[in-house]
Amino acid sequence: MTQVIPCTFGFNIIQSLLEIHGFKVVAGNFPSFMVGALITLELTALAVAFGMVLGLVFGLLKMANQFKPTYWLATLYIDFFRGTPLFVQILLLYFGVLPIFGEIGAFTSAVIACSLNSGAYIAEIVRAGIQAIDKGQMEAGRSLGMNYRQTMWYIILPQAYKVVIPPLINEFIAMLKDTSLVSIISVSELTLRGKLIYASSYEPAWVWGTVAIIYFIMTKLLAIFGDYMERRLATE
């Protein structure tokens, strides 16, 4: 009898866990949580990718001459999207602005809202990164006869990207967490799925605990990736 105990021990744990209602709920809905996490990741990746394009464009525009209309456009854009809550931006775009342009789905709408928001923050990251580069670099490029754009492209930006990687990873992590807000417009990402599973099971600690852990794992992985990038750039 005594030799059998180690064998049945592990089995007993699962057996006894399955008797807990909350665990059953989490285990049974595991595929749904995973799909939610994937949608969260997809949304974040798209938002940050578009955000980087917007950020680069508006960051550069904001650095240009203060008397140009493009400067004011960039300032207005950045001020608005940094100065109002993302939650409100999501609602405003989905219910207020995008319907003007026709029927646009919740996911697309969420991507647009998050991209615009992310772009505003990344614009400031880009601007800070460029300003961190010694101004002698711009002068050297210009003195050789390259125009502003060529100097920016071949000399300043390749140096600035190293400076912006850490704050960019930071923005990535922040955006990943903030995508939870799009659950309000019924994008079935991780948080909305948590909400639905919770509503049908009434196991708040188990369901929200699981959601929190999944978010944490995703942000932690991003942070590790960020550290790796930083180390790689440091040795370059």
Partner: peptide
Amino acid sequence: INLIRQQVGMVFQLFNLFPH
């Protein structure tokens, strides 16, 4: 001015080489 600068070389006190 870019055309002019192509004909006027400049050497700086702090070199300003492109580090990358």
